[in-house]
Design a binder for these strands. Structure first.
Lengths: 236, 236
DNA sequence: ACCATTTCTTGATTTGGATCAAGAGAGATA
DNA sequence: TATCTCTCTTGATCCAAATCAAGAAATGGT
C-alpha cells in the first residue's frame, strides 16, 4: 500500500545536499506529491528500460543497483541511507539504465519525476544542487571505470578493502558490508575467484574470517594496492 | 601563444546545447575571458590530477581522453568537434580524473572554469543545460560500464562496429575512426587480441581491410552482438 | 535444535586473453 | 623511389580467471 510521505521523514530528506538549499515552498510541494513504502528484502523496485516515473530515496535498509544483458547480470552499485538513486534518468525523462532491488527490508521514498523536473526548471538552487550531485555521480563512475580497466582483480580487491577500511574510520578490523557473491560481481569477478583473491592478499597481511577483515600490515597492503585519490577517493 | 577568442568561433560554440539558451550577456562574458589555441598532434592538453583551470572545447581536430595508473594507460574516450570535455571537474572545481592529448592538429577553446562557475551560479538556463549535459555524460559512462562488465571482448567489438555503422548512416561499408591500438585500449583489450577478434568476426560477416569495415551479413552480426538501446544507444 | 537451503570455499580443468617474439604492411621522410 | 619507423598481424607460449564439481560453512525457517 502506498502512503503519503509522513512529515517525520521530511528532515532526513531535507538533509540531503540535493534538497538542502531549495525553498521551503518547493520542498513542501515535492513532498506532498511523494510516497513512502516499506519493502521486504529482494524486491525489484525498478527494471532497466522502464520509464523513470519516480526519483527514489533510500530512507532505511539498502538497495542494489544491477544490470543485465543476454542472461548475464552484474552488480553496479549499492545505495545506502539516506541517498537518492536514478536521478539522471528522472531528470532526463529517459528509461532507467539499471535495475534496483532491495537487499533487506527497506523504506523507500518515491518522488514523482515529473515534480522533480517541474521544480528543477524553476528553482535555481535546486538546479545547482542537481548539478553538483550529477557531477559527483559522473566522477564516481569514471573512477570505477578506471579501477576496472587499469587494475587486476587482486588490485581491485586490495583497494576496495582499503576504501572500506577508511569508511570504517581506519580501524585495523572491520566488517564487509556486502555479501561476498555481490562483492565479487561488483568487482567484476566470480565468487570463486574472490575467495582465491582473499587468500592471495594473505601475503600482504589481510586476514579474512567470515565477514570480518583484519589488516595486519597496513603499509604492506598499501604498497601492493597503490591507492590513488584519482580512483579511490570518493570525496573528490 | 594564447589568443583571445575570435568572434568567428562564437557561432560554433553557441550552437552547443550547453550554451544554446543562456543570455547573450552571459555568453559574451564567457567568451571574452576565453582563449583559442591550435595544437600540434600528440600534445598533452591536461594531466589527470591537475586543477581544472579551464573548460575545454574541441573546435577542430580530435582529442583522446586517457588515464594512467601504475605505469599502465587506458583510452577512456575520444572527443570530436564541436564538444566540451571535463565539464564535471570544472564545475566542481576538482582535479581532472582523466588526461587529454590531441590526436591530430586541433583547435581548442579554453574557458576559465571560474567564469563557468560564476555564470552557472546566476544563469538558470545555463544551469539547466549543464544538468542535461552531465546527465547525458553520466548515462554514457554507465552504458560503457555495462558494456565492459556484461560482454566479452568479441561482443564488445561487434557492438562497437554496429554503433559506428549507425554513425556512418547505416552504410554496409565504413571507416574506423580510431587507430586500432587505441580502439583496442578503448575496448579493454590488447592490439594483438583486437586483431584476432576481427578475424573472429569474419564468421559473422565482417570483412576488415585496413581501416575499412564491411558488414556483409547485417542480421547475422546483430544476432551475435545483441545490441540494446540500454547499452548501445548514445541518444537515450 | 534441527533440517533445508543457500553461500562460500577448495580443487581440477578449461578457456580467454596477455605476453613474447618476429614478420608483414603502411606511412613518413629524405 | 628507397629507407626508416611505427603499426598491425600472426604464431607460440604463458597466465589469470571462468567454469565445473563437490564439500564445508553459514543462514533461515519450522
Amino acid at each position: 500500500m502506498l502512503l503519503g510521505m509522513p512529515e517525520s521523514d521530511y528532515p532526513d530528506i531535507r538533509g540531503l545536499h540535493l534538497f538542502e538549499h531549495m525553498s521551503d515552498e518547493h520542498f513542501s510541494a515535492l513532498m506532498r506529491g511523494s510516497y513512502v513504502q516499506t519493502f521486504p528484502p529482494q524486491i525489484d523496485l525498478i527494471s532497466e528500460g522502464d520509464p523513470s516515473d519516480f526519483l527514489h530515496i533510500v530512507l532505511s535498509g539498502s538497495v542494489e543497483l544491477f544490470s543485465s544483458w543476454n542472461n548475464r547480470e552484474t552488480t553496479m552499485a549499492t545505495v545506502w541511507p539516506v541517498s537518492t538513486f536514478i536521478l539522471a534518468a528522472s531528470i532526463k525523462d529517459a528509461p532507467y539504465l539499471m535495475s534496483a532491488r532491495t537487499r533487506e527490508k527497506s523504506r523507500i521514498a518515491l518522488i514523482p519525476s515529473q515534480d522533480v523536473r517541474g521544480v528543477f526548471s524553476t528553482d535555481h538552487d535546486f538546479a545547482c544542487a542537481i548539478v553538483t550531485e550529477l557531477a559527483q555521480c559522473y566522477r564516481s563512475v569514471i573512477k570505477s571505470q578506471k579501477d576496472n580497466k587499469l587494475r587486476t582483480s587482486l588490485e581491485r580487491l586490495a583497494n576496495y578493502l582499503l576504501r572500506q577500511q577508511i569508511k570504517s574510520n581506519g580501524a585495523r578490523e572491520f566488517e564487509l558490508v556486502l555479501e561476498k557473491r555481490k562483492l565479487a560481481s561488483f568487482l567484476g569477478m566470480t565468487p570463486e575467484n574472490l575467495s582465491r583473491a582473499f587468500k592471495g592478499l594473505k601475503a600482504y597481511g589481510v586476514i579474512v574470517s567470515g565477514t570480518k577483515i583484519t589488516i595486519t600490515d597496513q603499509a604492506d597492503l598499501e604498497t601492493f594496492a597503490k591507492p590513488t585519490p584519482l580512483i579511490d577517493d570518493y570525496a573528490i
